[in-house]
Design a protein around this nucleic acid. Structure first.
Length: 609
RNA sequence: AGGGGAUUGGUGUAAUUGGUAGCACGACGGAUUCUGGUUCCGUUAGUAAAGGUUCGAGUCCUUUAUCCCCUGCCA
């Protein structure tokens, strides 16, 4: 982990919810091992390698790995790679990297070998096949030669029972033979399937003779051409859990209807098993538990929609800082700690609610506030000339003032920042005709330049178009370091109402700064129009060029924290948190705004425009 | 009456299993402040509805309402 300090909430530590209640009871009763031994707890995170992980997955990762940490058990990273036509090796890599980035490790994980200790469902294909044969022998599965259309039509609907397949009662030997032919690739895709024989009249559609295997004559990214049939989720998942000795198999609410099937398959294998049985010993039967997935406002997490954003060019890629993918959030500047804190704060329940995305923003502000070094950067520069600069010495001299690195961390110390005759301040910090509650600079007003000097605006310089292009100001040499000047003869102390950030023209660097806003304007994108694209925010990206930054941002200073992911993050005073984008080159820095600071002035302005 | 799940302030969640509805965030107000940041203090507002059992109901029972999931050879 980084030296950047802990997030506000230590993940998984003392959080309680209905799943911990279940596990506590199991530990107390000795359901999975010796009474009181919590180290037997085994969970798993089972992504399909067909896309990038997003914030919703992060919640599941934090839950599963957090539970393992809490109980002293383990959490397995297992790829559910049962569909070769949708899955790719590239996703395996990115998923592993994302889980590691969040700060979690599984048994056997190593830094020098990304895949060390990682499990794959495809490693269990032979075992699953053998169990399928066992179910055929037990009369609990059969090969169906109907077309997929016929199967669908015969399934019935929500209120009418299905009708049995004409192949439902075919001889066991025939199913056995056909299944082996399927396995060997002797039949084309879609020509037949292996189905479980359960109940065509079940009110639970999942139990109407579900498909266990389909023929897919495609190359698998790990097993190559070894298999021509691939197991369906419902058949495979519980077996994967069983093989790995998972105790608590945690999934989302939509799998609640699948639990009877999860249990049925394992029970069917176990039927007739036991000591002395020819079938063998009973296999491990994990408990499936469902919880409500994370559902944050103002974003989408559907793989289809995320892919559409990327492929149709609404964003610049899967790691576009506006994307809710972990790679996007990482590039945006979010810390693993803040994401873990967010996941912990949203709780674990069975209630399908909406989680305010503002919580995620607050989580990263909270974390970065404590650990991010402060720097000064001017997004939209307005030139300031100190007309009486010569009062304090040579007219073209540079003075170095000590600027606080982090008021939240006295140990962070100070740095030297150049101050000179020509400066830049934020254009938004000056108003020619300021309203009552605007505290910043205006004609005749005096403000403090942070850790620099107090300046007073004497004159406004405009171009032909009437735009303000420069401010002529005087400074008070007695206010060096931003200190208050001594009281006047009558004992009155002068005060300023605002402190502004600034950079000196003589010693600054230019950079591009990318400002991001929410990708969507609607709390639930697509809710109204049924098309999430209708709710896209046309101003979600604003690229600022010619920004003026203090020189220290161009080089890595010794006081910068050793971030675990190597991403340099800062607070730009009074603006927000920013990080260095990988698009940066040595001569041309690019920063991303992670999140703004809380801004009560803009709130006030919105209230009284 | 197809099946399954859910419902506590604006939001997210707790409530020792029948015993004072608590916490966090937000919003609002105030204090502090060399970041209109941070921090601190205060205010705000809730058991979906109706019946019932009980000395006592968020919790138990009945009815109703609303929302989510389920008819892939996806996961």
């Amino acid at each position: 982990m980084s030296d950047a300090g802990p997030a506000r909430v230590s993940p998984g530590a003392e959080l309680r919810h209905f799943i911990t209640d279940i596990i506590d009871a199991d530990v107390a009763s000795g359901k999975w091992g010796p009474v009181g031994d919590s180290s037997v707890v085994r969970t798993r995170f089972p992504p399909e390698p067909n896309g990038y992980l997003h914030i919703g997955h992060a919640k599941s990762i934090c839950l599963n790995f957090g539970l393992a940490e809490r109980y002293g058990g383990v959490c397995v990273l297992r790829f559910d790679d049962t569909n070769p036509v949708k899955e790719e090796e590239e996703f395996v890599r990115s998923i592993i990297e994302d889980v590691r980035w969040l700060g979690f490790a599984w048994p056997g994980a190593r830094d020098d070998d990304l895949k060390a200790g990682v499990r794959f469902a495809s490693d269990y294909f032979q075992q699953m096949h053998d169990w399928a044969v066992e179910l055929i022998r037990k009369g609990k599965a059969y090969v169906d030669e109907q077309t997929s259309e016929q199967i669908r039509a015969a399934r019935g609907d929500l209120t009418t029972p299905g009708t049995p397949s004409p192949f439902r009662d075919r001889p066991v030997e025939e199913s056995l033979r056909l299944f082996e032919e399927m396995v060997q690739g002797r039949h084309p895709d879609g020509s037949m399937v292996l189905r479980a024989r359960i109940d065509m009249a079940s009110p639970n559609m999942n139990l109407r003779d579900p498909v266990m295997y389909r023929i897919v004559n495609a190359r698998h990214h790990r097993t190559g051409d070894a298999w021509h049939v691939y197991p369906m989720y419902d058949w495979a998942h519980g077996l994967e859990d069983s093989i790995e000795g998972i105790t608590h198999s945690i999934c989302t609410l939509e799998f609640e209807n699948h639990r009877p099937l999860y249990d049925w398959f394992i029970d069917a294998i176990n039927e007739g098993r036991g000591p002395g049985s020819a079938w063998g010993e009973k296999i491990h039967h994990p408990q499936q538990i469902e919880f409500a997935r994370l559902n944050p406002s103002y974003i989408v997490t559907s793989k289809r929609k995320l892919r559409q954003l990327v492929e149709e060019g609404y964003v610049r890629g899967w790691d576009d800082p506006r994307m809710p993918t972990l790679s996007g959030l990482r590039r945006r500047g979010y810390t693993p700690e803040s994401i873990r804190a967010f996941a912990a704060e949203t709780g674990v329940t069975k209630f399908n609610g909406v989680h305010d995305i503002g919580w995620l923003e607050r989580a990263v502000r909270d974390h970065l506030n404590k650990v991010a070094p402060r720097r000064m950067a001017v997004l939209n520069p307005l030139k300031v000339t100190i007309t009486n600069w010569a009062d304090g010495g040579e007219a073209d001299r540079i003075e170095y003032v000590d600027v606080i690195n982090n008021p939240e961390d006295p140990g962070a110390g100070t740095r030297k920042v150049a101050f000179g005759r020509t400066l830049y301040i934020e254009r938004d910090d000056f108003m020619e005709d300021p309203p009552k509650k605007f505290f910043r600079l205006g004609p005749g007003r005096e403000v403090r330049l942070r850790c620099g000097y107090w300046i007073r605006c004497d004159q406004v310089v405009k171009n032909e178009a009437g735009e303000v292009v420069e401010l002529l100001c005087t400074y008070d040499p007695q206010t060096r370091g931003g200190e208050s000047p001594p009281p006047d003869a009558d004992g009155n102390v002068r005060k300023v109402k605002a402190t502004l950030h600034w950079v000196a023209a003589a010693e600054c660097i230019e950079a591009e700064i990318r400002l991001f806003d929410r990708l969507y304007l609607a709390e639930r994108p697509g809710r109204e129009s049924d098309n999430h694209l209708d709710d896209l925010n046309p101003e979600s990206l604003r690229v600022m060029t010619g920004c003026k930054l203090e020189k220290a941002l161009g080089e890595r200073l010794g006081d910068e924290p050793a971030w675990s992911d190597g991403i340099r993050r800062f607070q730009f005073e009074r603006l927000g948190y920013f990080c260095v984008d990988p698009d940066s080159t040595p001569g041309r820095l690019v920063f991303n705004r992670t999140v703004t600071l809380k801004d009560s002035w803009s709130k006030e302005r919105a209230r009284n425009p």
